[in-house]
Amino acid sequence: MVLTTQATWQDWPHVLSGKQFSRSFLEGELFPLAREMNNAAETRDSDYLRGKRVRLLFYEASERTLDSFISACDLLGAKYVWLGDPAVFSSQAKGESFSDMIRVVNCYEYDAIVIRSREAGEVAMAASVSRVPIINAGDGTGEHPTQAFLDAFSIFRSFGQIDGVRIALVGDLVYSRTIRSLAYMLPQWKVEHVYFVGPPQWRVGEDVRHHLEEASVPYSEGTDLEEVAPNADVVYLTRAQTERGNLPLRYRDAADQKVCITLTEAVLERMPDHAKVMHPLPRNDKFRELPEEFTDHPKVVIFDQVRNGLLIRMALLKMLLG
Rank of each mutant, 00 (worst) to 15 (best):
P230W: 11
S176E: 02
A41R: 15
H210A: 15
D253Q: 14
E293A: 09
W82Q: 08
K276D: 03
V228E: 00
I115N: 09
G140D: 08
S216V: 06
T146S: 10
R203N: 11
V300P: 08
E289S: 01
R64V: 11
V217Y: 03
R64T: 08
Y80N: 05
R177L: 01
P32K: 07
A229R: 07
R131N: 13
E192D: 15
S24N: 14
L237P: 05
A254L: 05
S128D: 15
E96R: 08
D67A: 15
E42V: 14
I155C: 04
E293I: 01
M271H: 06
L30Y: 07
N308Q: 07
L56R: 02
V301F: 08
F294G: 12
Q147V: 02
T4L: 05
V165A: 05
T242M: 05
R64L: 11
W202A: 04
I102H: 09
V123Q: 02
P13F: 06
N284P: 11
V197A: 03
E227F: 03
I162E: 11
L49S: 11
E36I: 06
V81K: 02
V191Y: 09
T262A: 14
A7I: 00
T5D: 10
M125A: 15
E243K: 02
V88C: 10
V174C: 02
S46R: 13
F287S: 03
S71L: 15
Y108C: 12
